[in-house]
Design a protein around this nucleic acid. Sequence first.
DNA 1: AAATCTGGCAACCGCCGTAAA
DNA 2: GTTTACGGCGGTTGCCAGATT
Length: 345
Amino acid sequence: MGRSPCCDESGLKKGPWTPEEDQKLIKHIKNHGHGSWRALPKLAGLNRCGKSCRLRWTNYLRPDIKRGKFSQEEEQTILNLHSVLGNKWSAIASHLPGRTDNEIKNFWNTHLKKKLIQMGFDPMTHRPRTDIFSSLPHIIALASLKELMENPSWEEQALRLQAEALQMAKCQYLQFLLQPPSLTNINHNNNPTEIEIMNLINSLSSPLFENQMMTQNNSSNNNNPLQPLGTDSVGLLFSHLPSLEVVPNNTSTYETAPFISKEMFSQNNEVCDPNNSLWQLPSSSTAPSPPSVAPPMNIIHDGPSSNSNNYGDACSSSSFGGSSASIWPDHLLLEDALFHDIPSL
DNA sequence: AAATCTGGCAACCGCCGTAAA
DNA sequence: GTTTACGGCGGTTGCCAGATT
């Protein structure tokens, strides 16, 4: 039903509030409460629309508003709640006393979202980004760097890049296919067949995959090299990839599968109590695993001028957390086959 | 030192749901 | 049942200060 904007009336002031206006609003609400917001401006002697007054009060002047930097606990709470609620800022704000939805929204957009992206996570799903395009900038940047150092022919570079991109796309698609159905958004009537998965595996020709295939075949005393690998083999083959299994540590029935845990956001890489997180990465693997997606650019350890290396943005300037921690141990970075022949920096 | 760029944040805009007339 | 008023919400904009060139 059409309703004209409340601020259509001409002559009403817009823009930043002056201290005088603030005082009038505070005084009026202290004495009379806000009552009807529409009627308030006249009663308070303000040349503003009611909506503007309400926003000013709820987002800035309310006495119970907590201002200042967000604490680590607040940050973690926002992350956890956002993974469950999405952009329901008011719902998130209701769990953070003294914080307004607007403040949380701004904090998310200017800090947390960028941080997640930089770490290689999709800020909406809180899961590792699986699209090839999200990784391409990394690949291109690293390849260009290598080209500068070695200066082989352009044709050679282009061909190699093409092959690598294709290989990576296949890997990521395969990982997507291997996710438990509960974690995929795909129509499960169209689940991939084992044949489809095997075809993909067989088409992957990187040394990493070949090595693992060999290992698997040997360890299982499989004398028939032509015998197709079963699903168990597939699991072993990709055991270096983080499983997408969800390990909730409480009885909540969250539908999404957030991957971000407190330790990932720890400022100094120390391991925090994983029980503090709503979700954990599975702990079954015996050795740390490299990421299933291209590692974030902050793997290249920063000198003072490293901001320009950061993919996408420079959220290292975050006022609350200092440099962001990588969830991938340094010694495993660049271990992905894709990055094997790129010199470490 | 000046110009330009960038990030942070307050405020606005437009839509939605609900209640009242 | 329809219209209107209102509060609330999420997305977006625009200003400003600090950083960079």
